[in-house]
Structures are given as structure tokens and as C-alpha cells.
């Protein structure tokens, strides 16, 4: 466990793996130390957002080190089926990078069960893990200034769905009509940590 301060606004806790992140996240969510305003889980880190007026960083570091991991509270048994038209602008590039054919990329993407590991990037965006190891690709060298809502993408070992139009640097392989985010719906995000996801192919419209 490594503690990386973000001035007086945050404490970035670096952990060994995603399981450790989820264990610490669950424990701190149940009993947040004084001065912590929000928790941002990611692949290998948990960011504690701090209220600069209230947080005692040294004390929070001590509490975090002494906190045993907890069982993740989500334990959701939900399976979300996501229809995808596989015609993304980077499908050919992903095939080249992985040494697969475009059809094999689709087969790998639809053949695996993914799980939402954590959110971030945009409201309703879920980082999907546990899919096919053969689909590991780097982010694009240049970010796009505009990626459409519903774009289905890959980066690193993750897959994801852009919940709304935004800039983005992931490799686009397809698109879905599923509305993964609506602020006025309960829950607003379909892709919450713990939700399992299965992609299936829809023919182009």
C-alpha cells in the first residue's frame, strides 16, 4: 500500500490489485474517516477526496493503513444484456493490433462475460473487466474530440460504453442503443460496480 498525496484535496492510495481496491473501498464506504468527502475506486488505486478545511491527512493515512478489507457490499447478481452493432471506426485497427480478424474480435467480445469493476471518466461509464485477454489493446495515440453516445470501445484490458457524446481515446469497435445513463432514473447508472455484462451482436441499421 502506497500513499500518494494530491496536495490538500486528496489522498491516492495505491494497492496491489483490483480486489484490494474493492476491499478497501467497501470498508471505507461503510465507515469513512472524518474529512473524506468521496471515494473514487479505479484499477489499482482508491482516491480519497478530502475537504481541505476538515481533513487531517496524517490521521487519515493512519486510519487507512489500519483498515482491514471488507467484503464488497455490491454482490449484485444482475446480468445486463447489451445489443451491439459492430461497425466501430477502430474495428480494423483492433484486429490488426490483436492479430485477429474483425469477425474474431466480435466473437471474443460477445463470447465473454464482463463485470463492471468501477466507474469514472463520465457519469454512467463502467470499466468492464474479466472479458477476453486476447482483446488487450492500447488507447489511441490521439484522443477523439467527439465520440458518440452508445459507442462500445476497448482500451487496455477493459471494455466500456460511452454513456453520452464526449471526447475519448478508446478504440471504438461498435455501438449500442441501450441508454446506460439517465440522471432522472433510479438507478441513474445501469453499469454499477458488480453488474455483469454480456454483449450480443445486432445487425446494422
Amino acid at each position: 500500500m502506497r500513499m500518494l498525496p494530491c496536495a490538500d484535496s486528496g489522498l491516492l492510495v495505491e494497492l496491489d490489485d483490483l480486489a484490494a481496491v474493492r476491499g478497501l473501498h467497501a470498508a471505507l464506504e461503510a465507515d469513512p474517516p472524518a474529512g473524506v468527502t468521496d471515494l473514487v475506486p479505479a484499477a489499482r488505486t482508491l482516491l480519497l477526496r478530502l475537504d481541505p478545511a476538515k481533513a487531517d491527512v496524517a490521521e487519515i493515512e493512519r486510519v487507512v493503513r489500519a483498515t482491514p478489507p471488507a467484503e464488497s457490499a455490491d454482490g449484485r447478481d444482475e446480468l445486463l444484456r447489451v445489443p451491439v452493432v459492430y461497425d466501430g471506426a477502430d474495428l480494423g485497427e483492433v484486429a490488426r493490433l490483436t492479430g485477429l480478424t474483425e469477425r474474431e474480435v466480435v466473437a471474443e467480445h460477445t463470447g465473454a462475460e464482463w463485470t463492471v469493476a468501477f466507474g469514472g471518466f463520465a457519469p454512467g461509464f463502467g470499466y468492464l473487466t474479466g472479458g477476453s485477454a486476447r482483446l488487450e489493446v492500447p488507447r489511441r495515440a490521439e484522443s477523439r474530440t467527439r465520440v458518440p453516445a452508445g459507442a462500445v470501445a476497448l482500451a487496455g484490458t477493459f471494455s466500456g460504453i460511452y454513456p453520452r457524446e464526449s471526447p475519448g481515446g478508446w478504440q471504438l469497435i461498435g455501438r449500442t442503443g441501450l441508454e446506460t445513463w439517465r440522471a432522472d432514473r433510479d438507478p441513474p447508472a445501469l453499469l454499477r460496480p458488480g453488474v455483469r455484462v454480456r454483449f450480443f451482436e445486432e445487425t446494422g441499421r
Partner: peptide
């Protein structure tokens, strides 16, 4: 790997 950001970063 993507990680949490704060204002001021």
C-alpha cells in the same frame, strides 16, 4: 491505469 483526479491536478 486510469485513476481518480482532483481539482488542481
Amino acid at each position: 491505469p486510469s485513476e481518480g483526479m482532483v481539482a488542481g491536478a
